[in-house]
Nucleic acid binder design. Structure first.
Lengths: 192, 192, 192, 192
DNA sequence: CATGAATGAGGATTCATTCAT
DNA sequence: CATGAATGAATCCTCATTCAT
């Protein structure tokens, strides 16, 4: 509709997105009706959601965009300045697991809506970024030869699987998981 | 209600389950209404689904049970008789990828409903079986020390991630993916 | 359909009617679906009910007929041979309350389906019989002048109200209720 | 949800309740589907009923509450200011019968839904109020000794029976019925 | 912008009934 | 006669969306 969003609009959208993340993490996508999201957000009407979003798909997409933005920002913060490729890789994994720890709802919601995202490109950008890191490691000679994109898919699949496993088993030892995860990627990628 | 199902009942349930698998693989869980499933199955009314299943959850669970049964059977067929642990592992991965190839709808539906299954135990039995294989490899000395259950979670996460990736990118080279997947697991698990 | 019922047919109908009485007394008319009644009767199919009854209304009517027949028979047994009008009246009330005691399900079901009976005449025959007794009492001079039919309606209303009250309050003292009921009718009808 | 209802909400609820009363009085509880009630109320869809009521039971309960409120108000208007217990009693009966006359649908609906009311307490409050009047009459010495609560049950049962009889026989002479009813209660309760 | 009432399509499920075996 | 599978209309209810205020 409108190209530019007013500040109020942005605040409202953010508020609704935050509520949606909570609800989806707690109850699942199927139960995340506008009614429940509005209640979670403390809104008095579901109409307000429809007013600020073009439709349910738009809201879901915004939720995905928001989570991926925070996720990316979080990971970049943790790996910024690191040069050595294997260190970047280890930092990447550690940052990913740390994000689950500190933003469990975001993480849980992300894997739950991945199938429903209209803009698949968002998810792909993740893969592309990691693939670039891997390729760089190969070029610098510390990583062995493999398909960087496929390896990125594998690594991110493990991360997502970890999030799902954490939903099933909240008692999971994340420190141990991080170590095993790091070791696995190290062994699987480094030049022997 | 009844402990034993009549043959007619079994056939109808199987027919409905098959239709549900098609629909979920094609349109997603959210779009898999009784109406669409009934049409896919060529049934005269949605009432027939309710007649044969206690509810939607019951149908979803049966779908999960059916897919996992076929999946397990398929993988066991391919790995039966193999003794050497690393060979079992390679066979396991190859069989898993082959299943995606030959039963893409089953695979796609499985990852889509995993979150919705009431009986999570089904999914867990997968993990337990693979963990047992890994533990055996450790005991026989060919695999290095790691947490077998966590490693099973990782391996199966990659498999599931591959299924999702295949939904996003149907042109994915599965042969190459199998090779990379096998190499990754080999490097990550074998004793150096 | 058929004019004459075979013995088997009669037995089946009676069995279904008995089950319906149990279900309606326990769960109410609204919950008395063919499915529940069939389960209560130990039948394997609701089709059997449809086979033996022209429709749900037919079943309800048969239930009403059956209960009223037993009720009438029960009351007549207890008042047979009594001549003196006030004694008949007292016996009538005592018999009615005794019926509640010994056939609570029948009684409860009767008041629950009264609104739904197609053949209202059944309920009316009750009123007519009691009105006749009252008229006889007036003719013999022991009862005062009043509209016999209205008085019959009143007395039977109290009886039905007692059944409903018993459903609400199972601890109700029926002996005390019988005494109060008898006294009320005595005072209200006898010639001063 | 909300503690206070908006005026619009109150109006709509009242409109739906009024329609439900009409439908139940005309067709019975079993036929009173949301569809029929919505048509009676001139609503565009049954969804509007669900929007304003938590469920069918909520609507039924509101119907009961509404009728009893009007009934109580009506009777209190007619007996207010009367002191002498027997006069109160006569006034109570007259007011009850007058209510049937002027609010036949309300009365008819009330007896039809009495079994279905979730909040039985509503019906009981009626009994308690009448029992209090009777007890007062006993204390002042004009009424004989009897169980006030049981007598209240009896009197209200007659009233309800009268409503049912009026449904069966619309030609019933209500004036005569009032006289007989009043006489009965007078004879049954006064000290001799 | 926000509200909440209204809309109507679509959801799963229950129902009495029919019918082939 | 009995069975149980099938039918399809009808049930209540939820949903995202619209709109007047």
């Amino acid at each position: 509709m409108r190209a530019n969003k007013t500040p109020t609009e942005q605040v409202r959208r953010a508020q609704i997105v935050a509520a949606a993340i909570e609800v989806i993490a707690r109850d699942g996508v199927a139960q995340a009706s506008f009614k429940v999201i509005a209640e979670q957000a403390g809104l008095s009407s579901t109409g307000l959601i429809s007013y600020h979003f073009a439709g349910k798909q738009d809201l879901i997409d915004e939720v995905g965009r928001e989570i991926l933005a925070r996720f990316t920002e979080f990971v970049l913060d943790r790996t910024d300045g690191v040069e050595e490729p294997t260190a970047v890789l280890r930092g990447f994994i550690a940052a990913n697991v740390d994000f689950l720890r500190t933003h469990r709802n975001h993480a849980s919601t992300l894997v739950r809506i991945k199938n429903d995202l209209a803009t698949v490109d968002l998810a792909r950008s993740d893969q592309a970024a990691l693939a670039a890191v891997l390729r760089q490691g190969q070029n610098s000679g510390v990583l062995r030869a493999f398909d960087p994109h496929l390896m990125a898919v594998f690594v991110l699949s493990i991360r997502d699987g970890l999030i799902r496993q954490l939903d099933l088993d909240p008692e999971l030892d994340l420190d141990a998981a991080t170590r095993e995860f790091t070791t696995l990627v190290d062994l699987a990628t480094r030049r022997t």
